[in-house]
Write a protein that binds this DNA or RNA. Sequence first.
DNA 1: GGCCCCTCCTTGAACTTTAAACAAATGGCC
DNA 2: GGCCATTTGTTTAAAGTTCAAGGAGGGGCC
Lengths: 177, 177
Amino acid sequence: MKAPASAPTTGSTAPPQEPRWLTDEEQRVWRWFMEGATLLDDHLDRQLQRDAGMPHVYYGLLVKLAEAPRRRLRMTELAMLAKITRSRLSHAIARLEKNGWVRREDCPDDKRGQFAVLTDEGLKVLRQTAPGHVEAVRQAVFDRLSQEQQKSLGEIMRIIAEGLQPAEAGADLPWLR
Amino acid sequence: MKAPASAPTTGSTAPPQEPRWLTDEEQRVWRWFMEGATLLDDHLDRQLQRDAGMPHVYYGLLVKLAEAPRRRLRMTELAMLAKITRSRLSHAIARLEKNGWVRREDCPDDKRGQFAVLTDEGLKVLRQTAPGHVEAVRQAVFDRLSQEQQKSLGEIMRIIAEGLQPAEAGADLPWLR
DNA sequence: GGCCCCTCCTTGAACTTTAAACAAATGGCC
DNA sequence: GGCCATTTGTTTAAAGTTCAAGGAGGGGCC
């Protein structure tokens, strides 16, 4: 797919606007982004699968639970924090429960509700594997970037993340699907 | 998981070094990165699944093929360009072949080899769906970032991407697995 | 109360990805 | 030529994710 560097706008009222193609420079940025993100994802998934026996997303769930009061969170709340769908979370928690790292608990206030609770076992696994994971993240990311770049990266990704979860009702957010 | 802001180094020769935890600031950067990447991935996957009937990765494969001479690439070459494993690629191409968007061809020079070839059908789908996809990428990323930020992002992700695919032999690269 | 719509979470099937094993062909080496 | 390690790509099964559907409870409204 050749992406023309730029293109004239169409004359007047036609809905099929001329696409706003990416410039060569934008194209390069986008490709580095996708490559970096893909490789990083693969790298961390592999590291955690090897050392902790779970994918990166599952590890992230344990982290969120560990940080929460009483090491527990409502399912929807956890899905929101992890930016995933409730369905995906249900399956994930089922697996983690089978491992004995998480347990479910009924919510007293709302009979529809469920808490996911990090078990002592789960906390132990997290403690054991956290150092290796942090090290992997450091080596892949922070050790390679200047202070400036780290700050930029945070700011940029914050903008993207916030752009994708608008406050408006009706937004297509994973945890509301 | 609480991540201490910093920690003293261990005395001398003990292998289990004190983990180099992330500082609060690094922690924030890392979380925005993961959130942004997760949401973006979800967003684009969904957009393409809806409008093109395939996941983002598959779309990327068609793009690579469209850019290649004679619209064809060797399997391993394509896996390398897409930063994925050959196994994953095999499955993906099988699916795209079933759709009639890609066809396989034997390599004359190397009887083990296979070409993945973009069909006219595949090219058509790409042409039809590219505008919508570019627009989605723009809205989510480029429209929200300054020129400066775009440049930074490219540079940063290039560093990360290159760091994860060292030239050395024995590197754990997806397409060599 | 009864009704209706919405939220919370789960389920099963279809699809995608990973992991491990494999067949076939290549290429270096003797 | 013959041998052996490596490369190429596929295959199978298991694991993970998405999609569509659904059960059950909450909460407003009459």
